[in-house]
Design a protein around this nucleic acid. Structure first.
Length: 424
RNA sequence: GGACAGGUGGCCGAGUGGUUGAAGGCACCGGUCUCGAAAACCGGCAUACCGGUGAACCCGGUAUCGAGAGUUCGAAUCUCUCCCUGUCCGCCA
């Protein structure tokens, strides 16, 4: 969410930001409307506060008269009339503010200068590690997974629906091993506080991290309560400090959690649906950091490095992609995607998305810090990234580490946790 | 799920219709005192929004005592709904 001052004083910067995302044409009337609403809001506030001041003064006189044992009927009548006007203006104000805040909640964050302008084709690989292998003789992960008896797509679909996966035997153990490896690395080596969070969250939390109101159709909602299944542990971890003020001495604050993630993928029907590439429920280890505004960009580099570390340990080739403005998520100001190569399907798979949200989420969720110099509380910057998402990592392991005989080599860092050096 | 009891400023805690934005205490900041510290004493100490020339300081106003709605000339104080916390009972992995 943007500061209302952005609308009032830096409207050109706001427009420029929307233009760089390629959404200005669609949002221009909305922005104009916001400017008008802001003006109307201030006028109404002045009108209503003027009357409230008058009523307060009259009421005080009523009190004085009554204590003196005098009648105050005339004053009471005057106050009643003011009250009617106040009620009318208050309703008007509530409507204006409601519409204005709805607009503010639907405007995406402005990307930072280092983010290339343009669409997906302007995404830029900033570095890479390892070499993608030739996939000519590599079976796709859904074939090898079925042969090894570790992934059961059919029964997942039967018990839940398409896009829900049952892992069996060593597949199930693999999930558990990945969870333990990632949580151990991030908590012990990278200093994140290990956390276990609810996967059901309320509307305020979903709004705080900006899944709502714009993306409600992508969320699984509960039927009997105004609550949702999380699409990522980012939601509970970032809302941990919603409506709180953190002492600067505690920053940066960092958290990691493993959780299931639920995504309806409403707009992605038929895209990458094969195998493990796009599923409705998956597990993921998430990283979240609360940092000072001055440090958020260097903190993004740090966090991205932490996620990369897992790919290195899994011995999977990867590349780091800086997303162009048009491809950057709604709430993010700067995003690196981590992609690992899956030779069986011949594609780079996004296994992590590391973002600097600047103060966009902090403003929505009202997360501030108290500066050590005694200054007024300021909004923190929030960051998060996957470290990593399991299904695509599993796909990549099954394909990239696949041997000629159809067995799969398990990299050393993982075999300790899995208790096996190969599958099959 | 049922029955009680509660939710007041950073914390504790007064306050049941009218100078209460809110007593008192703690914490914190500044000062006096001291070689220094502690103690004592003096003073200060909420936030947001609107306006006063779109900075700072300052001034005026409005709002905020879990949230929302209502009664009233006037609500922290009365009524209703909801949320949360505690205790006991029931149920349950």
């Amino acid at each position: 969410m943007h500061d209302l001052r952005m609308v009032r004083e830096h409207i050109d910067a706001l427009r420029a930001g929307m233009r760089r995302r390629g959404v200005l044409d669609a949002l221009s009337p909305t922005i104009d409307r916001a400017v008008a609403l802001d003006k109307a809001r201030r006028e109404t506030i002045q009108a209503v506060e003027e009357r409230k001041a008058a009523r307060n003064a009259v009421s005080q006189q009523v009190g004085q008269r009554k204590r003196a044992g005098e009648s105050a009927d005339d004053l009471q009548q005057q106050s009643r009339l003011l009250g009617d006007e106040i009620a009318r203006l208050d309703r008007e104000l509530a409507q204006t503010e409601g519409e204005l805040s709805a607009i503010l909640l639907e405007l995406p964050n402005i990307t930072l200068d280092q983010v290339p302008a343009g669409g997906e084709d302007k995404n830029a690989v900033v570095r890479s590690w390892g070499a993608p292998r030739d996939g000519a003789r590599v079976q796709p992960h859904w074939e090898i997974g079925a042969k090894l008896g570790i992934i059961d797509f059919e029964r997942g679909a039967k018990i839940s629906g398409s896009g829900f996966i049952v892992f069996r035997e060593m597949g199930a153990r693999l999930v558990r091993a990945l969870m333990n490896l990632m949580l151990d690395v991030h908590s012990r080596e990278h200093g994140y506080q290990e956390t276990w969070v609810p996967v059901v969250v309320n509307r305020a939390s979903m709004t705080g991290t900006a899944q709502l109101p714009k993306f409600e159709e992508d969320m699984y909602a509960l039927r009997d309560e105004d609550a949702f299944l999380i699409p990522t542990a980012e939601v509970p971890l970032t809302n941990l400090y919603r409506d709180e003020i953190i002492p600067e001495s505690e920053l940066p604050k960092s958290f990691t959690a493993c959780s299931p993630c639920f995504r309806r993928e409403a707009g992605a029907a038929g895209k990458d649906t094969r195998g493990l590439l796009r599923v409705h429920e998956f597990d993921k280890v998430e990283l979240v950091r609360y940092v000072t505004p001055e440090s958020s960009e260097e903190q993004l580099e740090l966090l991205t490095g932490h996620a990369e570390q897992i790919l290195t340990q899994l011995d999977l080739p990867y590349r780091v992609v800086r997303l162009a403005s048009g491809d950057t998520g709604f709430a993010s100001a700067h995003t690196y995607d981590l992609e690992t190569f899956a030779p069986g399907v011949g594609k780079w798979l996004e296994v992590s998305s590391c973002s600097n949200f600047t103060d966009f989420q902090a403003r929505r969720a009202n997360i501030r810090y108290k500066p050590s110099d005694g200054g007024k509380p300021r909004f923190v910057h929030t960051l998060n990234g996957s470290g990593l998402a399991f299904p695509r990592v599993i796909a990549s392991i099954l394909e990239h580490h696949q041997q000629e005989d159809g067995s799969v080599r398990i990299p050393a860092a993982l075999s300790t946790y899995l208790g096996a050096e190969r599958l099959g």
